[in-house]
Nucleic acid binder design. Structure first.
Lengths: 149, 149
DNA sequence: CTTTGACCTCAATATTGGTTGAGGTTGTAC
DNA sequence: GTACAACCTCAACCAATATTGAGGTCAAAG
């Protein structure tokens, strides 16, 4: 036997409720709305009302931010979610899979950086011309300003 | 027999030279100076002159930024370098070792995040209450706003 | 009813990490 | 000795990601 709680189903959320349940400030919710990341409708008295789906959306936004995706890109990705119906698990999976690549890249970059840094710690090579961490900007300067390789 | 190149030893650098050799814009060098990350003295005609050590310092700044250290913290760390003499390999090593910790933490955090995301991709759990990625903000909301755990 | 907390809008402010431009000076190459 | 690139200062601006505040409205409890 399954009891359905009227609090959990069908009831629109106020901005304060969304803020409390999502851990995001009211001002941030306004901001996300202005940027097109979440949608609302208005009550008779012009107050924002949120579909419960917004909680999932906000959770996804926060995860994406942790991955390092800028809000603009998050907005683009979210805008590809189906219009009119609630996203399914499959929809969310597609997003996750997409961002996993970014995450992997970032982990890879940082790992490479750490390995180079380890070499520097081992040999003190931040003080040596041949150091791979500091050298690209120096010996290749004849190729013009800015980083090379 | 070792030839010492007068271009490489003892000659002060202009801001343009530092910019070209470090791959950092002149405006950024001014900015770093204002923030106390690098030092200069002035020529008779009020133009900046840089000790060659500044190249190493700038390289270190750029590495630290890649690690994700904000300029303020970089400034703090650099301010602990010895005053009056050029930093030794040992000095730079201490810095590297310090920042290695941050880097490892960040790699760890992102790796944990990736593992959680993998679970989400596998099970579609971004749509499920129990999901470790989206849940903290929801079921723990009675502890007050903001992330928990 | 009235009060009080939650909500509204819009503009200003904050932080980080710089870049751009105006208006003027210096230094070097011819 | 003059032209032109490189330099100077200072203020304004940029983008991202919000927060804060002023001034006003709404809604639910007593």
């Amino acid at each position: 036997m399954t009891l359905i709680n009227a609090d959990d189903i069908g009831k629109a959320l106020t901005v304060g409720e969304v803020a409390e349940r999502s851990g995001v400030a009211v001002s941030a919710l306004h901001f996300y709305e202005k940027k097109g990341l979440i949608q609302t409708w208005r009550s008779a008295g012009n107050q924002r009302r949120y579909h419960r789906d917004v909680l999932r959306r906000v959770a996804v936004i926060k995860v994406a931010q942790r991955i390092g995706i800028p809000l603009g890109e998050i907005a683009d990705a979210l805008s590809e979610l189906p219009d009119g119906r609630s996203p399914t698990a499959r929809d969310w999976k597609r997003l996750s899979a997409k961002w996993r690549g970014h995450l992997n890249e970032r982990i890879h970059d940082l790992t490479v950086l750490r390995d180079q840094l380890d070499q520097c710690i081992g040999c003190g090579c931040l003080s040596i011309k041949a150091c791979r961490l500091r050298n690209p900007y120096d010996t290749l300067s004849e190729e013009g300003p800015g980083p090379h390789i």
